[in-house]
């Protein structure tokens, strides 16, 4: 399912349809996360991925137009590079542990400690919450920094001051409405 939507995303040239399909893609990803026991991730993906990302794409589309031109030459370089990477990845996948194997190296190091002691040590029964807010709190702090930086960047790029300065020596764009994000 996900793969089909992914292919459609790459092949369709109408960008409005692409924006709508990203929403469907995110929703399917949320279902996949649910099936893999990652309920918190599914929440976040459904809210942030399906909601905010789609809105961002739609807002951009209202500014830049909604059709993509057909490329002139076949992208042989990209096809070759992708086949090469595909071969390498499949070769590497034979070293991976089996899917769902409880003895895989990922589950041996710190994960048992989190699952066994975090409900008593931190409090909430949801282990993802305890790890996110307590054991790996600095990660979350860094994430806040990244989001802040992105917000400042978007404001600097689309803020009123810069636009006025550029407007003077450039021909006005055809649909130069103010962008709300």
């Amino acid at each position: 399912m996900l793969l089909v939507v992914g292919f459609a995303l790459v092949l369709i040239r109408d960008l409005f349809a692409v924006a709508m399909l990203t929403g469907i893609y995110s929703l399917l990803s949320a279902c996949f996360f649910m099936l893999q026991d990652a309920v918190d991730v599914a929440f976040t993906e459904a809210a942030v991925g399906a909601g905010i990302t789609t809105i961002l794409f739609l807002a951009t589309m209202s500014q830049v137009g909604r059709t993509e031109r057909k490329p002139k030459n076949k992208p042989w370089f990209a096809i070759g590079l992708c086949s090469l990477v595909a071969a390498l990845l499949v070769y590497a996948s034979f070293d991976m542990p089996d899917y769902g194997d409880p003895l895989a190296p990922v589950h041996q190091h710190v994960a048992p400690r989190y699952t066994e002691t975090s409900p008593n040590e931190v409090g909430p029964p949801n282990m993802v919450t305890s790890v996110l807010a307590s054991y790996r709190g600095y990660d979350t702090l860094g994430e806040t920094g990244v989001v802040f930086t992105a917000g400042v960047g978007v404001l600097l790029l689309l803020g009123p001051g810069l636009r006025r300065r550029y407007r003077r020596d450039l021909p006005a764009p055809k649909d130069g409405k103010k962008h709300a994000e």
Binding site: D40, V41, V110, Y114, T115, V128, V131
Partner: peptide
Amino acid sequence: YSNPLPHVLILTAIVV
């Protein structure tokens, strides 16, 4: 239980 650590990392990654 499934491993909670990748879930935490991906929560962060989605927002980023």
